[in-house]
Amino acid sequence: MLELRDVQVVFDGFRALDGVNLTVPEGELRFLIGPNGAGKTTLIDVITGLTKPAGGSVRFGGLDLVGRKEHQIVRLGVGRTFQTSVVFEELTVIENLDLAATFRQPLWSLARRRRGISEAVEQALTRTGLEDLAERSAGVLSHGQRQWLEIGMLLAQRPKLLLLDEPVAGMSKDERERTGELLTEIADDHTVIVVEHDMEFLRRHASTVTVLHEGKVLVEGSIDQVSADPRVQEVYLGRRKAEDAVGNRP
């Protein structure tokens, strides 16, 4: 379904991605890990059209994504979230979801008021468990709830491929758990790629893991295979303490 071949991204001489090959078949839940600066978010940016690759190809469902605008890629069925969640604070939870759900409607048809709740919005609301907050403005939501709302907005768009960038970063233990459940549920009927730092979360929920390092794919396999790999231990797990001290992505 998603196929990246020899993708190159260069920022001011720095090779953020240096020939990445990645294939994600339909229906898979794929985790993307790697030390800070490994190029995880850049990879997502390339798929979603935010960053233009210097070379290589990105194919999704047989279509070339390189050179398409962000909103066109979304219309092909690729949705994403960001590290820092961006919900529209002045709109209510329902309005946020509704805005996401109506993206395929022609602009003129939006000049009417929303009446009731569409099926897609209803489903997204139930799945994310935000029913009680439906009429509240998104500005009052907690960090965790915002992330769920973002995921809900994605779901309301019924995408084929979801890209989640660190969905549990900054979440409490309970919130992580709920997000994990939500993720497993979503993965049942969607293809999902998750960028995640949190190893415990990975062990609990990951099936297939791709490890990125210095802009290249280092290893790919199940979580046990990956964590047993000496190269991974060296570049990633072995350096975890130092990384935690440095903090998140530069």
Partner: peptide, 28 residues
């Protein structure tokens, strides 16, 4: 006023507050 209260109005506010996010919702 009708326009502002419509879905288009919500979209407009969303564009004002997070143009980049709106792009990733599939709108131009």
């Amino acid at each position: 006023r009708q326009l502002v209260h419509s879905r288009y109005g919500r979209l407009l506010v969303a564009v004002r507050d997070g143009e980049d996010r709106v792009r990733f919702l599939g709108y131009d």
